[in-house]
Design a protein around this nucleic acid. Structure first.
Lengths: 129, 129
DNA sequence: TGACAATTATGACGATCGTCGTAAAATGTC
DNA sequence: GACATTTTACGACGATCGTCATAATTGTCA
């Protein structure tokens, strides 16, 4: 398992930046700014990026127009966030969460298929109590 | 349907309290304190509760040993939080989230059953693109 | 009714967050 | 080289969060 269980706090704004990094791979400040562009100050993005780097959640290249990249995987973060939510809102029970996910969003046929596969796979691993 | 409670930020600590309220229905400060007990100051719980009330996320009875209760449903909050996460970490795609949920946690046979039912129900509502 | 206990009010403090301005420094352009 | 533009550094400010201490108020009962 991962030893990174340490309480990495990720704020909303940070997640917003991370999303850009995950999607673009590597970006300069100006690109990042444009990416989540419009109504957000340039230096605001700068600060957010800096703080991310400071926390070890992103890294910055040394060359001039510095390029930033995520230092944590999307999967890693989302798993952590999700588990937090799991504990916090449904006392660790996953069914209610999945319920909301599938009931309150429209799904495509492919998605249904994928979900079925996920469940089938999970079924094979039912813990033998 | 529900007017989506726009932009209510719910912090980690607040969620922790809300969880207690949801689980116990109505609690006095001292009960709440004991519920998430041990290493948390009494007045800390008090403050958290106060702030929750101030934000309209909980309400307090007028009678003496004041009883606190959640003013928002667990479902409402978790849905909001989950949707935020959805946008923020997987660009709106639910499959990855469900994947983490079912792959990285052990499920009971009953849970598998429930999940299957959920999927089946969702299948009947596949969006008619 | 006075002492002790439970409850509630008030205010404080440091950390983080979200926001940005200012301005220095590096780089690009004639 | 001089000027324009881009990139960085630095620091600031108000809001929220997490934490709690202390004081005031109210309830209990001997």
């Amino acid at each position: 398992m991962s030893a990174k269980r340490k309480g990495r706090r990720v704020s909303a704004g940070e997640l917003e930046i991370l999303e850009v990094l995950w999607r673009h791979g590597e970006v300069t400040l100006s690109v990042a700014h444009r990416a989540l562009g419009r109504d957000i100050g340039y230096t605001t993005v700068q600060t957010r990026l800096n703080r991310l780097v400071h926390k070890g959640l992103a890294r910055r290249s040394a060359d001039r127009p510095a390029r930033y990249a995520a230092a944590v995987s999307q999967r890693e973060i989302s798993a952590g966030q999700l588990d937090l939510l799991l504990e916090r809102v449904s006392g660790g029970s996953i069914v209610p969460l999945v319920a909301h996910l599938v009931e309150d969003h429209s799904l495509s046929v492919e998605e249904i298929e994928q979900l079925k596969r996920l469940i089938d796979k999970a079924e094979k691993n039912v813990e033998p109590r």
